[in-house]
Simulated scan of single mutants.
Amino acid sequence: MPLLLRFLDKAELLAASHLCLRSKAYWGYDEAFMASCREELTLTESDLINDNIVAAEDQSGLAGIAQVSKDQSGCFLEKLFVDTDRIGQGVGKQLYNWSLATARELGATELIVEADPDAAPFYERMGCERNGQAQSGSVQGRFLPRYVHKL
């Protein structure tokens, strides 16, 4: 199915947030872990104002989302989530390529990704290089692999 990328609309924040949670839960996390991630995975109106957020959709509806932010410390892939029934169909790759192009348009020389450990192989296939680790924004004492993609 052809995939359309378009900027996320304010009315879609709740549906997109639910997609993020479903996609994260795909990796087998329990309810307590998912509850601790809820706030970090919820998209807000502030995100729409401050960041670039794109929705991928096809005939069946919302297939995935990606969020890129940039500040004085760098350009970050904040979120890249694919709906569970679309995993392995190229949605993530298309969203990641959009993220790279967006980072370039923002004048960045690299895109920083703090990845879920289960998603690490995907980012490595996309050309990211491991660059240490980062503290999870949701779970105290949990560290995530940190990647950098030179632009």
Rank of each mutant, 00 (worst) to 15 (best):
Glu31Cys: 03
Ala56Thr: 09
Asp47Ser: 11
Ala115Phe: 02
Ala66Tyr: 03
Thr84Asn: 06
Ala134Trp: 00
Gln94Val: 08
Val54Gln: 01
Tyr26His: 13
Tyr26Asp: 05
Ala16Ile: 08
Asn50Trp: 14
Ala120Thr: 12
Ile53Trp: 00
Ala11Ser: 13
Gln67Glu: 03
Phe122Gly: 01
Ile49Thr: 14
Arg86Gln: 14
Glu39Ala: 15
Ala119His: 06
Trp98Leu: 01
Arg22Ser: 11
Asp58Pro: 04
Met1Asn: 09
Val148Phe: 13
Gly141Lys: 05
His18Tyr: 09
Arg22Glu: 13
Ala115Trp: 03
Leu95Cys: 02
Phe122Ile: 06
Leu14Asp: 14
Gln89Ile: 00
Gln89Ala: 10
Tyr147Ala: 05
Thr42Lys: 13
Lys24Thr: 02
Glu129Cys: 14
Phe122Pro: 09
Ala101Asn: 12
Ala134Ile: 01
Leu21Glu: 06
Gly92Leu: 01
Cys20Arg: 04
Ile87Val: 05
Asp9Glu: 15
Phe33Lys: 11
Val82Asn: 06
Ala120His: 05
Ser99Glu: 02
Thr84Pro: 02
Thr109Gln: 10
Asp118Ser: 10
Gly127Trp: 09
Glu124Val: 13
Ile87Ala: 10
Ser69Pro: 08
Ser138Gly: 07
Met34Lys: 11
Ser136Ile: 01
Leu100Gln: 14
Ala56Val: 10
Asn131His: 12
Ile112Met: 07
Gln89Val: 01
Leu19Asp: 06
Tyr123Ala: 05
Gln89Asn: 04
Asp58Ser: 11
Leu100Trp: 09
Gln59Val: 04
Gly64Lys: 03
Glu31Gly: 02
Arg142Val: 01
Asp85Glu: 14
Ser99Ala: 15
Leu100Asn: 10
Pro145Leu: 11
Pro2His: 05
Tyr123Gln: 05
Thr44Glu: 14
His149Arg: 06
Gly137Glu: 10
Gly64Glu: 00
Asp9Asn: 14
Leu48Gly: 01
Asp58Ile: 05
Ser36Met: 15
Thr44Leu: 14
Ser46Ile: 08
Gly132Phe: 07
Gly88Pro: 05
Lys79Ala: 11
Glu129Thr: 15
His18Gln: 14
Cys75Tyr: 00
Gln72Trp: 12
Arg86Ile: 02
Arg6Met: 11
Leu100Val: 15
Arg130Ala: 15
Leu80Ala: 01
Thr44Lys: 12
Phe76Leu: 11
Gln135Phe: 04
Tyr96Leu: 12
Leu43Asp: 00
Met1Ala: 06
Cys75Phe: 08
